[in-house]
């Protein structure tokens, strides 16, 4: 299950729309061990392609050094699919190498609505997971009327 703040979801979708028809990509970092996405970090797609994304290698090094200095990990790794559904492609699976991350896909193939889904990708195996969108982590899981939102 991915529990994520609404403003972070909105930021990912806005980034995906902005870069459409190229794929958009980025990370949401959070404290190590928390499984809580907090710091939104949009990345440049070095491939600038509608069918491929890649973090530029210098950007990647700076990103991981910065996260290490803050005791953060990439809780969410996101990218967009601009002409296909929000499901990990064979290429996505072959590159996926953060077994603790939530891999979020946003599809922008429809102009008026977006598809937003989350997966674990471990040892080449894809498992979709539910998403709970919350206004604040402080009030997540507080009671029976805390109905999970869906996007």
């Amino acid at each position: 299950m991915l529990v994520i703040r609404r403003d972070l979801v909105d930021a990912m979708v806005a980034h995906a729309r902005r870069d459409h028809p190229d794929e958009a990509c980025g990370v949401i970092a959070g404290p190590e061990g928390s499984d809580q996405p907090e710091r939104f970090i949009p990345m440049v797609n070095a491939a600038r392609s509608p069918t491929f994304y890649e973090f530029e290698s210098g950007d990647l090094l700076r990103l991981y050094r910065d996260m290490a200095a803050r005791d953060e990990v990439p809780v969410v790794v996101y990218h967009s699919h601009t002409a296909t559904e929000a499901y990990p492609s064979r290429t996505d699976v072959s590159y996926a190498s953060e077994p603790d991350a939530h891999y979020v896909l946003v599809s922008t193939r429809e102009p008026d609505e977006h598809e937003f889904r989350s997966y674990r990708i471990v040892d080449g195996e894809v498992t979709e997971e539910p998403i709970e969108v919350v206004e604040s982590y402080m009030f997540a899981h507080t009671g029976a009327d805390d109905v999970p939102d869906t996007v």
């Binding site: 794929e23 990509c25 990370v27 990345m43 491939a47 392609s49 509608p50 069918t51 491929f52 994304y53 890649e54 973090f55 290698s57 990647l60 090094l61 991981y64 050094r65 790794v77 990218h79 699919h81 601009t82 002409a83 296909t84 990990p88 492609s89 290429t91 996505d92 590159y95 996926a96 190498s97 953060e98």
Partner: peptide, 11 residues
């Protein structure tokens, strides 16, 4: 020496 997996993929 820093080893990092590439972060990449595509439709």
């Amino acid at each position: 020496v820093t080893i990092l997996p590439a972060v990449a993929g595509g439709a």
